[in-house]
């Protein structure tokens, strides 16, 4: 085994940490999809970062970092749900374990982001603005409602519809991308 204090090992760890930083938004998106609205998302992200640092030597540069990092993040979520007392507004540990068994290897990968960018252009400017307020500015739907002069429920419905439209469009786009790849 390589000396963990050797310049090569230290550089490797630093490179792996750099990959974590680069992909942190993707890993955080995964955590948010399981713990929506929870302040513990950043704690779990931090714990994932620390575990990735400790296990960096197991990761081979050039292989799939996000898949490896998501595996660690999944483990951290499981651990967290087993050990901590959760809000009753979050899913319980039994269902979380079952959900994680069915979790895709990677969520929100580059192909999906590319498709999402194209699909967003099909939405009306007002819905695009609402999504920006919700996801970029982290505004609660109630605040968005006050801003656009709608009822909160209407904003929920609009966001929900926008996500359904985007989901269908992303599926169509990514299937199209796969088809054109296989033809070339």
């Amino acid at each position: 085994m390589a000396d963990p204090q050797s310049p090569e090992s230290l550089k490797h760890v630093s490179q792996v940490q750099g990959l974590f930083v680069k992909h942190s938004s993707q890993i955080r998106g995964f955590l948010i999809s399981l713990l929506p609205g929870s302040v513990e998302v950043d704690d779990l992200l931090q714990e994932t970062f620390l575990t990735i640092t400790a296990k960096a030597e197991n990761f081979e540069l050039g292989t799939n970092f996000t898949a490896w990092a998501m595996t660690i993040a999944r483990f951290k979520v499981k651990e967290h749900f087993r050990k901590s007392q959760k809000s009753e507004l979050l899913l319980g540990d039994e269902v979380m374990e079952t959900l994680l068994e069915d979790a895709p290897e990677v969520l929100a990968d580059d192909t999906q982001i590319l498709a999402l960018k194209k699909c967003l252009k099909n939405l009306s400017p007002s819905v695009q603005k609402m999504l920006t307020q919700r996801y970029e500015d982290d505004m609660k739907p109630e605040k968005i409602a006050a801003d656009v002069g709608w009822g909160a429920n209407s904003v929920y419905v609009a966001l929900s519809r926008a996500r359904s439209t985007l989901r269908e469009c992303i599926i169509k786009q990514t299937k199209g991308a796969l088809a054109s790849t296989s033809l070339s």
Binding site: R28, G29, A108, I113, Y135, R167
Partner: peptide, 9 residues
């Protein structure tokens, strides 16, 4: 997945 993609994007 759609939520996570929107968060990331």
């Amino acid at each position: 997945g759609t939520h996570a993609s929107l968060e990331r994007h």
